[in-house]
Computed example of a mutant assay.
Amino acid sequence: MNLEENNVSLKLFIVLSRATRAIHDLVEEDIRTYGLNPTEFAVLELLYHKGDQPIQQIGKKVLLSSGSITYVVDKLEKKNLLVRKSCPKDRRVTYAVITENGTGLMDDIFPRHKEAIELIFSGLSADEKSVLIELLKKLGYHARS
């Protein structure tokens, strides 16, 4: 890699990092307006769209440690947004189940959250978004290999 390619890679890293931070901050700000923190929202959103989940598996799906998941599940349970339910076939497994209150909250806030994300990304055309998705996938796959 020559010096010019190296400089472009560094610039790309900085621009991508700053863009990611700006987007993350706006999304987090939106989530906090609903009285939730981002991890609480991520767990509720998972249960809302994917149904009951083994608590042990939630961390992998929302990128949290098992200790953090227990804390978040406890907080959501205190807010009456989810409950724990034992698996009838395997008592070692406990499911997180969204409550009626949790579903009602997500019915209310998810469409508004989706609109906020649409607004954040409205600086790009649909074609630009598609190209960016493909390029970021390519970059991510390469970085993992």
Score class of each variant (00 low, 15 high):
43 V>R: 01
44 L>W: 00
45 E>R: 06
47 L>G: 04
47 L>D: 04
47 L>R: 00
47 L>P: 00
47 L>Y: 00
47 L>C: 01
47 L>F: 01
47 L>M: 02
49 H>A: 03
49 H>C: 07
51 G>M: 05
51 G>V: 02
52 D>Y: 04
54 P>A: 02
54 P>Q: 01
54 P>R: 02
54 P>T: 04
54 P>M: 02
55 I>D: 01
55 I>F: 00
55 I>R: 00
56 Q>D: 06
56 Q>F: 11
56 Q>M: 12
57 Q>T: 01
58 I>N: 07
58 I>L: 06
58 I>T: 02
61 K>H: 11
62 V>Q: 04
62 V>G: 03
63 L>W: 04
63 L>H: 13
64 L>T: 05
64 L>K: 11
65 S>W: 01
66 S>I: 04
66 S>N: 10
66 S>V: 09
66 S>M: 04
67 G>I: 04
67 G>N: 11
67 G>Y: 06
67 G>A: 08
68 S>D: 01
69 I>Y: 03
69 I>G: 02
69 I>C: 05
70 T>F: 01
70 T>M: 05
70 T>Y: 00
72 V>L: 01
73 V>M: 02
74 D>K: 00
76 L>V: 07
77 E>M: 09
78 K>D: 12
78 K>E: 13
79 K>M: 09
79 K>Q: 12
79 K>D: 02
81 L>A: 03
81 L>V: 02
81 L>S: 06
81 L>Q: 11
83 V>P: 06
84 R>M: 08
86 S>E: 14
86 S>Y: 15
87 C>F: 05
87 C>L: 13
88 P>N: 14
90 D>E: 07
90 D>S: 07
90 D>Y: 11
90 D>I: 12
92 R>I: 10
92 R>K: 13
92 R>S: 14
93 V>F: 08
93 V>R: 14
94 T>M: 10
94 T>I: 13
95 Y>H: 08
96 A>P: 11
96 A>I: 09
97 V>Y: 06
97 V>N: 04
97 V>W: 08
97 V>Q: 03
97 V>L: 10
97 V>G: 05
98 I>E: 02
99 T>A: 02
99 T>R: 08
101 N>T: 15
101 N>V: 07
102 G>I: 01
104 G>S: 15
104 G>R: 15
104 G>L: 15
105 L>R: 07
105 L>N: 08
106 M>E: 01
106 M>K: 12
107 D>Q: 05
107 D>K: 09
107 D>L: 04
108 D>V: 13
108 D>C: 12
109 I>M: 11
109 I>V: 12
110 F>E: 15
110 F>Y: 15
111 P>C: 08
111 P>G: 11
112 R>P: 10
112 R>I: 10
112 R>W: 08
112 R>Q: 10
114 K>G: 00
115 E>Y: 06
116 A>T: 11
118 E>Q: 12
118 E>G: 05
118 E>L: 10
119 L>H: 10
119 L>K: 13
120 I>C: 03
120 I>K: 12
120 I>G: 06
120 I>R: 01
120 I>Y: 01
121 F>G: 11
121 F>P: 03
121 F>A: 09
122 S>R: 10
122 S>G: 03
122 S>Q: 12
125 S>H: 06
125 S>Y: 03
125 S>K: 08
126 A>T: 15
126 A>M: 11
126 A>Y: 05
